[in-house]
């Protein structure tokens, strides 16, 4: 594999693509939303169960490419136990990471394993794949109806 491809398709991303975490319907979800990327036809549904201001449970369903599936899977891992404000800060920083605008990696919340998505910034057309689940999460938190589109 060329080094650029290795940067994008990190082992951890491929693992989450082949064996996604938290990929199921959450029967007792109190927040949910559906996201759609019309460019590639990817669809994702995000389900949340909140305990006050804190995320108690989170799951997703959908079919997509390696980047969008792994992003949804790793997002759900990263969210559990966080407050809504912490989640928003994390998304802001993740968004800066995948769009190549992260100026100070030390500032703000710890991205942890999500740092493997840094390679996406070299592939502008794939940014929407990496952020689809996150945009859908945002819509779920805001209880917006309808389908979130990346376009």
């Amino acid at each position: 594999m060329t080094s650029e491809l290795q940067d994008l398709y990190q082992e951890l991303i491929l693992d989450h693509y082949k064996r996604p975490h938290n990929q199921r319907h959450l029967d007792d979800a109190d927040h949910q939303a559906e996201g759609y990327n019309p460019l590639c036809g990817d669809r994702v549904s995000v389900y949340l169960k909140l305990d006050g201001n804190r995320i108690k449970e989170v799951a997703f369903q959908g079919a997509g490419c390696a980047i969008s599936t792994a992003s949804a899977s790793m997002m759900t891992d990263a969210l559990k136990g966080k407050t809504v404000e912490e989640v928003r800060e994390l998304f802001d920083k993740f968004h800066a990471l995948v769009t190549g605008r992260l100026e100070n990696p030390e500032a703000g919340p710890d991205l942890g394993k999500l740092e493997v998505f840094a390679g996406v910034s070299q592939y502008p057309v794939r940014v929407k794949c990496a952020t689809l689940a996150w945009h859908t999460l945002e819509a779920a938190l805001e209880q917006r109806g309808g389908v979130v589109s990346t376009e």
């Binding site: 490419c65 390696a66 980047i67």
Partner: peptide
């Protein structure tokens, strides 16, 4: 085992330009 979008990205890395997606024909998909 591989989504068309990922196929397209890897092929591009190899200098091969193809289209991936629904090709403006969603009923065919």
């Amino acid at each position: 085992g591989a989504h068309p979008h990922d196929i397209g990205t890897i092929l591009n890395q190899m200098g091969v330009a193809i289209r991936t997606g629904h090709h403006c024909a969603q009923p065919v998909m």
